[in-house]
Write a protein that binds this DNA or RNA. Structure first.
Length: 763
DNA sequence: GTTGGTATCTGTGGA
DNA sequence: AGATACCAAC
């Protein structure tokens, strides 16, 4: 096995030390592009080469993609035994363990996994049942508060004992939160369902309560632990990790890798505190700290700009990221007047770069703060015939038709799944309306049983009772077949037998056809799941499980992101959050405006601004060679035009790293366009071919009227053409075009797109 | 119970 | 602007 240490020669000294320091606690602080994944994978490979059993290694990541990548890279070094390493996301690994141990904590191994929509629906119905005001009790805020309670290990019982939390609820005018929380947990339990947080929380509970000594079982099993993206773990996740390796007599073979500067999931409970706690907890056991500071990804202007930006954050682990890839190109800045113009100019730049540097589409990414921003870039990319792929947004599994079929599948596996039942009890239509359903719900509540178990009970009209009986028989039939059919056979059977396929076949619109295609795609997916025999080959028990139950638990934790895309040459469009861990030759970070990036939600608290800054840091460090930043002075939000100031983050990058950053006053004051219109000047300076004053319009007092208010017959002022009269308006709602007559012009009739125009009505 | 219209909210981020 | 949620009329 002389080949074994070849891989060490590809590492720098720090990386090598982090890889070979096999025993005891290790903290790796890894800057962007510093070879973090290499360290993790080689470290695991190194364990295996040193004789560690692959299945005693547990590597936890945040995304399936990261896990998959890790596995395949380990396999390159050590061969097929890499498959037996327990590498996966927190959620998927724990789901897998819980499936085996569920009975220990009052669940069945067929438990359902509620996604966010299920949770929200359940919370809404609880709010309704408790006769609470739904404005006062916003389901989304309730859900996220429940999530943070669970992530902080606060059960409903502990919650009611916590004066501080109760006081907060009182101050927020939500005194009944504790009741909603308790009801929510009970209802999930009643339905044999776990939400995403439960997969972590119940795992912790399992180890805490320790029935049948499971704790020892897993402590012995997992001798070597690794955690990727440690800065994104929450208190609960660290709690579980600590249970597994921080105890009397433990070898404490744990390695966590993270970068405090890239912590961007504070909103879901992630805390950098975990890094500090980790150091403290393992200090007495000879913790080794390694800092990976050399960036192998980006050229120097980019790296230095990133360093400068992140320095505005006060609390951080000191490190200096550097690159030896040469100065490289300076950063480009695009300043646009409006969101649409931003779209056009970004795509123009992209095309230009593509030609100049001979890049392929796949070398480019357009990164934005919110998914809603993708639309305009898509428009221009399509117009220029550039293939692209949008990541994020509504996922395949969130489409209505997919959720419908999945709900039936879920019911077949677990008839007690109340949220699934609620979804399909009257779809396709079988005349079971709210009245009937409410009776069922009441009955269920009074007996504390799942809906399905009270479906045949009393108090209903004959007609309703009859229909319900048929429905129950249908589900029962599906349920029985779960033991005889595999996932695909059953999926196909259910799709037909439930009437879903027929229902969507009735819809002859292109939309309906699309839905049908999606349903087929889902069934194909199930088929692939069934036919794929590359699944786990573990020594203990996790055999090739092709059951529907197993399928459902798998997909519940999968995102579109995980769908393998063949080698298609497309431009990537995604949120900055989803871009973490990726790299592109050329990156466009767009929408760099105050209230957007940084997000308006973050403006109040300095900690939140710091998180936005880390997000920006993540964004710019995705770029290898070219970085282009853009912002728009105005954009539509809620169907209304908003005027924006450039992001503070632009100012935080020193001018020397910019190719074309205008003097700061022209960038940051002249073009800002507050409602007074006083600073619209900057724009006019760039348009020397006209002078607004000529028409007696003072740009400082120019107030564009909303496009919707423009009507035929009105006299209007246009900044460029002066005073005119609206002749007519035509075109669809989104693309209204006004024909306006400006008498004083040589060609008086102008056709003006209302969407883009700035017109002020003359009173 | 279903249908169609209107009111309301959203659009930080994601497993 | 677009989706969803709710309500009144059928």
């Amino acid at each position: 096995m002389e080949k074994t240490t070849d891989y060490l020669n590809t590492l720098n000294d720090v990386q090598k030390n982090a890889v070979t320091q096999s025993n005891g606690p290790v903290l790796v602080v890894a800057g962007p592009g510093s070879g973090k994944t290499r360290v993790l994978t080689y470290r695991i490979a190194h364990h295996i080469h040193s004789g560690v059993r692959p299945d005693s290694i547990l590597a936890l990541t945040f995304t399936n993609k990261a896990a998959r990548e890790m596995k395949s890279r380990i396999e390159e070094v050590v061969g097929p035994s890499a498959k037996r390493v327990w590498a996966g996301t927190f959620h998927s690994i724990f789901a897998r363990i819980l499936r085996v141990e569920a009975h220990q904590i009052g669940y069945s191994s067929n438990f359902t996994i509620y996604d966010t929509d299920d949770s929200k629906a359940l919370i809404s119905s609880i709010i309704k049942e408790l006769n609470l005001n739904k404005e006062q009790y916003n389901a989304n805020s309730i859900r996220s508060r429940i999530s943070s309670a669970k992530s902080s290990l606060i059960t409903p019982v502990l919650y009611t004992k916590n004066e501080e939390l109760l006081l907060q609820d009182k101050q927020n005018n939500r005194p009944a939160f504790k009741d909603i929380y308790a009801a929510y947990v009970a209802r999930c339990k009643r339905s044999d369902a776990m939400d995403f947080d439960d997969l972590l929380y119940r795992m912790f509970e399992l180890l805490q309560v320790n029935p049948d000594n499971v704790l020892d079982k897993y402590r012995e099993k997992f001798q070597y632990l690794l955690v990727d993206e440690f800065q994104d773990t929450n208190h609960l996740q660290y709690g579980i990790v600590r249970k597994l390796c921080h105890y009397e007599g433990s070898p404490r073979n744990i390695c966590v890798v993270g970068d405090d500067a890239q912590s961007i999931y504070g909103f879901r409970g992630a805390t950098i505190q975990n890094i500090l706690d980790f150091e403290k907890d393992f200090q007495p056991f000879g913790i080794m700290v390694f800092k990976l500071e050399q960036n192998y990804r980006s050229t120097e202007h980019i790296v230095q700009a990133a360093n400068e930006v992140i320095n505005f954050n006060t609390r951080q682990i000191q490190k200096k990221i550097w690159s030896d890839k040469g100065q490289g190109e300076k950063i480009k800045l695009i300043k646009a007047l409006a969101d649409t113009e931003e779209g056009k100019r970004v795509v123009d730049h992209l095309v230009e770069q593509k030609n100049r540097f001979h890049f392929k589409n796949i070398d480019f990414a357009i990164l934005y703060r919110t998914n809603a921003q993708s639309r305009i870039f898509e428009e221009y990319l399509r117009r220029y015939n550039i293939p692209y792929k949008v990541f994020g947004g509504q996922s395949f599994y969130q489409r209505k038709e997919i959720k419908d079929l999945l709900a039936y599948l879920r019911l077949a596996v677990n008839p007690n799944d109340d949220e699934a039942l609620r979804r399909v009890i009257n779809f396709p239509k079988r005349n079971i309306g709210n009245t009937t359903f409410n009776k069922i719900a009441e009955k269920a509540a009074s007996l504390n049983l799942p809906f399905f178990q009270v479906i045949n009970q009393s108090g209903l009209s004959n007609r309703a009772a009859n229909t319900l009986m048929q429905f129950a028989a249908l589900i029962q039939d599906f349920h029985t077949k779960t033991t005889t059919l595999n996932a695909y056979e059953l999926g196909y059977f259910i799709a037909k037998r439930s009437g879903i396929i027929d229902e969507y076949k009735k819809d002859k619109t292109p939309e309906g056809e699309g839905r049908l295609e999606n349903l087929n795609a889902l069934l194909d997916g199930i088929k692939i799941f069934v036919e794929d025999d590359l699944v786990e080959e573990n020594e203990e028990g996790i055999s090739l499980d092709k059951s529907l139950s197993s399928y459902l638990q798998n997909i519940a934790l999968i995102t579109d992101f995980d769908q393998e895309e063949g080698e298609v040459d497309r431009v990537t469009l995604m949120s900055v959050h989803s871009a973490k861990g990726l790299e592109f030759k050329s990156v466009f970070v767009v929408g760099l405006e105050e209230k957007l990036f940084p997000s308006f939600m973050s403006l109040e608290k300095i900690d939140d601004i710091d998180e936005e800054r880390r997000l920006f840091y993540v964004a710019i460090t995705r770029a290898e060679q070219l970085l282009t930043l853009s912002w728009a002075a105005s954009r539509y939000k809620f169907g209304q035009m908003r005027y924006n100031e450039p992001s503070r983050f632009l100012e935080e990058i020193p001018e020397i790293h910019f190719e074309n950053k205008p003097k700061s006053n022209s960038l940051f004051s002249e073009t800002t366009t507050p409602t007074t219109g006083s600073s619209i000047k900057g724009y006019f300076k760039k348009e020397p071919n006209f002078n607004a004053q000529d028409f007696g319009i003072d740009p400082n007092n120019f107030k564009p009227s909303p496009a919707a208010s423009i009507q035929p017959g009105m006299d209007i002022l246009h900044l460029k053409f002066g005073r005119g009269t609206v002749q007519s308006i035509d075109g669809g709602a989104a693309n209204k075009v006004a024909t306006i007559r400006f008498e004083h012009l040589d060609q008086p009739e102008k056709r003006i797109m209302l969407k883009f125009a700035k017109l002020q009505i003359v009173e």
